[in-house]
Design a binder for these strands. Structure first.
Lengths: 342, 342
DNA sequence: TACCATTGCTTAAACGTTTAAGCAATGTGA
DNA sequence: TCACATTGCTTAAACGTTTAAGCAATGGTA
């Protein structure tokens, strides 16, 4: 068993022809290389015999594309993102691309460094689930004209391709659902962030209340720091609950918030949904572990992932038109945690 | 702002010297290249000015190493593995390596294909969380002398580097712990698998019972198919519980089994730990969502990941001695789900 | 018959590095 | 003073591809 060492010139030698000819055949360009039928077959034969595997490095060096996509994820330990990553990876592979993942851990500097490492690795383009303050990153990529698609989170102030969920609408739906089921004083817990998707979720929630004639109190909205989630979510929930007019339902804007929040509700011995109705964003399967299945806004991970890949790939193949936007709706999965109040 | 286009020869031109000289300086070989101090500084200066970024492809093509590691994970949607992946990625990056991940989804064929894609990408080595029937893969890598480290799961019949948890011991501890807390009829649910780590976990469990004078009944051991987990786990639990001598505790050998199993226990309205004590393997955070915090065998993900990387990297730097083995102990995190029986 | 197009192939440069080998100038020791 | 070592640089080949350009033989058309 020969190892990886078989090159074009080995085949060429074996066939008694030039490497050019072999290259034309191996890259399916026998037409434009004007290679004879017979010879083409012979070369293919020999290549198979020698188990030829093209050297991708050489290919890339020569033609300037690596067929590699850089995927920068805000937080890979979040299963929602992990599953997005997986979807992106699968879909890319299906299209002949390899992806290199990096997690920025919601840190702009780390994202920046990651981007540079990946640029150095000559990725052809990026798919980015951006973190706070990633404007610089977006600008830089635009400057050097490296194609990229923003996934799940985008910046309205930049004109970029993106694939996102309609967050305002999702939040709106979550809120309306709770109201329809009899909840009135609905809290909302989000990460403290200036990012658009966060603001949108808050907006949707507030609008839903207003449309149903409920004035969303400022104290119902809690913003907790990503880095101090464990402590701050306790304070947040305490403040929502320990007041003369405690909330009767809560919307978690994120998987991580929900996990930590629900945990704390357990500690407080607050019952869902009797004491507190719950709807969450984020990833599903795990919410089933709660004694009471958690209602959530299901984001179509597969659609998001696949669309981002296909959008990027059309860019990579030279498309240079208008920025592409793709917005998909989340779907309310209503379960026990938000069942009608009795 | 110039883009990526600056090459050695641009610097060489600017400095009026040969590319060789620049190369020596840029790769820190001014000593062996016998480059003059003054010239070296001038070159560095110019390089910085032009914002030179070496072309990694060219480098790799020339010297045959890509500084890339292929990471093949059995199931990336499992948070335990996702976190391992993350650890591996971080540690690799810290050492100047980039990793390319692929999930084999516990499928030997997919793992094989992945391996080939990654070999084509000229990874310098592999870290592999292997799936069933990956013997062929191991053999092939040994044949072509591509370094690799098996992580979390290994094959005793092959002489390879590996980094694993002491599964028998962990299982033994889980069993003993339950027994000490008064449980007597302890079930064990594992994936149906011929893999060593699965067998080891079963062995540890059985030995623990025996050492405490309990004969582990064959009916207490349930093996469910990875692909049919949702249905088979129900049958398994039904059979464990609906008998004249139902079990009073259960060990889940895996994160996925635990999630699905606990879910079903909820449906059955079985109370943990009153009706059924529980200890699980797998990832932690999420078990907190259960109304009753789940005891688990904590595997030191960071240690596993870091050790695998360092083991591989020493191989990559030419070490060719004996196969390295590293075994780490899991730690019992005892919580409510296995509290002493009253 | 002369001309041109087509077919089947080869040559060679290029992508951006690394590095062995070589060359000239200077320094050193006997 | 000669021989040789050291210093500071250049040349050029190599890694494995791709592809424009060129060349010779054949076929078709006028």
């Amino acid at each position: 068993m020969k190892s990886d060492k078989v090159s074009l010139s080995d085949i060429a030698k074996a066939a008694g022809v030039s490497t050019a000819l072999v290259s034309y055949v191996m890259s399916g360009k026998e037409k434009e290389g004007r290679v004879g039928q017979e010879m083409a077959n012979r070369i293919r034969e020999i290549a198979k015999e020698l188990n030829y595997q093209p050297n991708l490095l050489a290919k890339s060096l020569r033609n300037g594309r690596t067929n590699t996509i850089g995927l920068i994820i805000a937080d890979i330990s979040n299963p929602f993102f992990a599953n997005i990553a997986r979807e992106v990876e699968d879909e890319s592979r299906r299209n002949g691309y390899t992806i290199i993942i990096g997690s920025s851990d919601e840190d702009a500097d780390k994202a920046w460094d990651l981007m540079n490492v990946l640029i150095n690795r000559q990725v052809d383009g990026f798919i980015i689930v951006s973190s706070e303050n990633s404007g610089r990153l977006v600008e830089h990529l635009q400057n050097i004209r490296l194609p990229f698609v923003l996934l799940d989170r985008h910046f309205p102030e930049y004109n970029t391709d993106f694939v996102v969920t309609n967050n305002a609408k999702a939040s709106h739906e979550a809120g309306s659902h709770l109201i329809q089921n009899g909840y009135r004083r609905i809290g909302f817990i989000a990460y403290k962030s200036a990012m658009f998707h966060v603001k949108e979720r808050i907006r949707g929630y507030q609008e839903a209340l207003q449309e149903h004639g409920i004035e969303p109190k400022a104290t119902w909205l809690k913003e907790v720091q990503f880095n101090a989630i464990e402590s701050e979510i306790r304070t947040a929930i305490d403040e929502l609950v320990q007041t003369e007019e405690p909330i009767d339902a809560i919307i978690f804007s994120t998987y991580g918030l929900a996990v930590n929040g629900l945990k704390y509700l357990n500690e407080l011995r607050l019952r869902v949904p009797e004491d507190l109705g719950v709807v969450s964003f984020g990833q599903a399967e795990v919410f089933d572990l709660y004694y009471c299945p958690i209602s959530y806004m299901r984001q179509p991970i597969d659609v998001l992932g696949k669309k981002a890949v296909s959008m990027l790939i059309t860019r990579l193949s030279g498309e240079s038109g208008e920025a592409q936007h793709f917005t998909v709706d989340a779907q309310l999965i209503a379960r026990e945690s938000s069942r009608p109040k009795v």
